[in-house]
């Protein structure tokens, strides 16, 4: 065979033989890690504007999407009629056993969607839903982060609503949502003032009033039994974290719309539950004690 071919063959052989491992070399970190365990890939990066469009919201700050809704009072949610702002304010006062007067403008309803339930500094509230009263309307606003860069804007807006509020109504917000928002604020160098605020946590109220009658005190149970509402095609709260991760890692926003719907439904049920629990007779309604 000719010289050219032999040279090519010799080079190939030399490459196949490879270099003897030198004692001083330590395999690269990535390689060592792979030896000890396994891993997997994938990603993409569409814009906040595209996300806003797909969920029917607008971009109000870098990476921050806002979705708003208004509901004219009175309106029905399930079998509860939410009469007016003052009826809600009265409800908050009696259900929360508050001493001072409560005016409708002071009420702030709160529910968040997060990346996990541990509540530590690694948990992010990627969606914050708030509701408040303006005259004869209930205004719901939901903020969704398209990325972490949006967090500062989200916290600022939430803090602004908190600053104008006097009474917060939530479901498990006392031990989860509010501490989490305070943590997120601290991490982005802001402060969420909530010291002067009174917190009416409907989880505690529900437990107090209905613990013996119902199998559990989850919002869904309350919704079904007390409000007579059955959600269709609801994305369970437990799947919200994965839905957001899907957006972050793959640019797939298909489930985020449903997360917004779920969050909105939670907020409305929160409002209705407050209204329901106010009427003394409502507490004795057969509905509340009916088996599933």
């Amino acid at each position: 065979m000719d010289l050219q071919t032999r040279l090519v063959q010799l080079r190939a052989k030399a490459q196949a033989r490879g270099l003897a491992p030198s004692p001083a070399s330590v395999p690269a970190l990535g390689e060592r890690l792979e030896r000890l365990r396994v891993g997997a890939p994938a990603r993409g990066v569409p814009t906040a504007e595209a996300l806003a469009a797909s969920v029917g919201g607008t971009v109000v700050a870098p990476g921050l999407i806002e979705v708003g809704r208004t509901y004219a009072l009175p309106f029905e949610h399930g079998n509860v009629s939410i009469a007016s702002g003052s009826s809600l304010a009265d409800a908050a006062k009696s259900v929360g056993r508050l001493s001072g007067a409560v005016s409708p403008e002071q009420l702030l309803f709160l529910d968040t969607e997060t990346t996990g339930l541990s509540g530590g500094t690694g948990t992010t509230a990627f969606m914050v839903g708030v509701g408040w009263l303006e005259g004869c309307t209930l205004r719901l606003v939901q903020w969704l982060m398209a990325g972490f860069a949006a967090e500062s804007g989200l916290v600022a807006r939430a803090a602004d609503r908190f600053a104008r509020a006097g009474v917060i109504a939530s479901f498990n917000g006392k031990s989860f949502d509010l501490p989490l928002l305070k943590t997120r604020a601290r991490l982005v160098g802001q402060e969420l003032r909530a010291d002067g605020l009174v917190h009416v946590d409907l989880l505690h109220v529900t437990r107090r009033l209905l613990r013996s009658a119902w199998p559990d005190c989850r919002l869904r149970t309350a919704e079904e039994r007390a409000l007579g509402l059955e959600r269709t095609n609801d994305l369970p709260g437990a799947e919200a974290p994965a839905a957001w991760r899907r957006w972050l890692e793959r640019g797939d926003a298909s489930l985020l719309g449903r997360v917004l719907d779920h969050n909105r439904a939670d907020l409305l049920s929160l409002v209705a539950l407050l209204a329901l629990l106010e009427h003394p007779t409502a507490r004795e309604t057969p509905l509340l004690h009916a088996p599933a």
């Binding site: 990535g30 997997a40 990346t115 541990s118 690694g122 990325g147 972490f148 974290p241 890692e249």
Partner: peptide, 25 residues
């Protein structure tokens, strides 16, 4: 390298120059 490995595992997410925790654990 370590952060890239964690990102591949779906535990952190890289946005710009920062790596954020996104797992629910």
């Amino acid at each position: 390298d370590a952060l890239r490995y964690l990102a591949e595992q779906g535990v952190v997410h890289r946005e710009g120059p920062r790596w954020h925790w996104i797992a629910d654990s």
